[in-house]
């Protein structure tokens, strides 16, 4: 029998509404409120415990709440964690996202939740957590629980995930590898040509590579060049020839920062590229075509901007996932901040 642990807020935990929203987290054995319905719908699995926490406590003391909940779960066996459904309840949706993300990161078990599309928790956590598209309110409880537990049952039975469109959860922006039957109609060439024919005939067709909607960041205010402390960042794989940090040539998870103090240019033989996604000949012959240190230095000497940061930051951009790229950039930030960098020239190949 597989073990499932659930999370609900104070309202669904049966202790009260807004007046109880400051409730500190606690855990009980077995089911509470909607987790009874979840338990009933699970096959070969049972809800062993339910965590309850007030939405305001979670919202105002998130780290404290999560740390206590992680503490409750530390000694429990668990094959799956389910939070909600949260419907259109904003604080509850964000709480479900926070708890699911923390459980997934700490214990590595699959996590599921459900909420309405306009619940802010959906946008905040849909990339990290499988969030089923739920209804606006508790009248949809039966239906939302059914969708959630159907997937949970298949997941626990080891059946393949059929993708967000079929399963009914929000797109996470990731792809699964899938082996199709070895027949002509399944080849990429055949599928591509079918799509092209439909496109040429003006018929609807479904791309296999859906580009997620743009998620723009606010545009940074201009920086006056007399105040600009500039750093150079590159995804060209330009590194010292010995590649001291062993940055991978593709699908990089590592990055490096290397001193360019007192250098007027990047010399060939001292720097090279380890990028496996393009012909390295030109970059190796003159690394300045990748990281334009010579030109940047020239402007610095002319006094066009305040000064250049003493290091350049580098990784390889081929096959590197957006999540890894984001993490690496975030890891660079403290070094950049420490030196007062306010502008960055980021070169991609």
């Amino acid at each position: 029998m597989k073990k499932v642990i659930c999370y609900v807020n104070q309202f669904f935990g049966g202790i009260g509404g807004e007046d109880k929203a400051d409730q500190e987290p606690y855990i009980v054995e077995g089911v509470v409120g909607p987790t009874m319905a979840i338990n009933a719908a699970l096959k070969d699995a049972e809800v062993t415990h339910t965590v309850v926490c007030g939405d305001n406590f979670m919202g105002s003391n998130t780290e404290e709440a999560l740390s206590r909940i992680m503490g409750f779960l530390e000694d429990k066996e668990m094959d799956l964690f389910i939070a909600g459904p949260a419907f259109q309840a904003g604080r509850y949706g964000v709480a479900c996202g926070n708890v699911c993300k923390a459980v997934k990161e700490k214990f590595g078990v699959p996590v599921l939740t459900s909420m309405y599309g306009e619940n802010p928790g959906a946008d905040m956590f849909k990339k990290d957590v499988i969030i089923f598209k739920g209804g606006t309110g508790a009248v949809k409880m039966r239906q939302d629980v059914k969708v959630l537990t159907n997937f949970a049952n298949r997941l626990l039975a080891g059946e393949p995930n059929r993708g967000c469109a079929v399963e009914g959860y929000f797109e996470r922006g990731c792809r699964h590898e899938l082996f199709l039957e070895d027949i002509r109609e399944n080849t990429a060439a055949y599928r591509g040509v079918q799509m092209l024919k439909k496109k040429m005939a003006g018929e609807p067709y479904q791309t296999e590579l859906i580009i997620p909607e743009k998620d723009l960041v606010p545009i940074a205010a201009p920086v006056e060049l007399k105040d600009a402390v500039i750093a150079l960042v590159t995804t060209s794989g330009c590194v010292p020839v010995e590649n001291p940090d062993r940055i991978q040539s593709a699908s990089a998870t590592r990055w490096g920062r290397y001193s360019i103090k007192d250098m007027d240019r990047l010399e060939a033989g001292v720097f090279k590229t380890i990028h496996a996604g393009y012909d390295p000949a030109a970059g190796n012959a003159d690394p300045n075509v990748l990281v334009p240190l010579d030109a940047v230095r020239a402007y610095e000497k002319e006094g066009k901007f305040k000064r250049l940061h003493d290091y350049f930051y580098t990784t390889v951009g081929t096959g590197t996932t957006e999540a890894e790229a984001t993490r690496m950039a975030e890891e660079m930030i403290p070094y950049l901040r420490e030196d007062g960098v306010n502008a960055i020239i980021l070169g991609s190949t």
Partner: peptide, 9 residues
């Protein structure tokens, strides 16, 4: 990620 952190990129 860098621009989100406030750098002009």
């Amino acid at each position: 990620a860098l621009e989100k952190a406030g750098f002009n990129v």
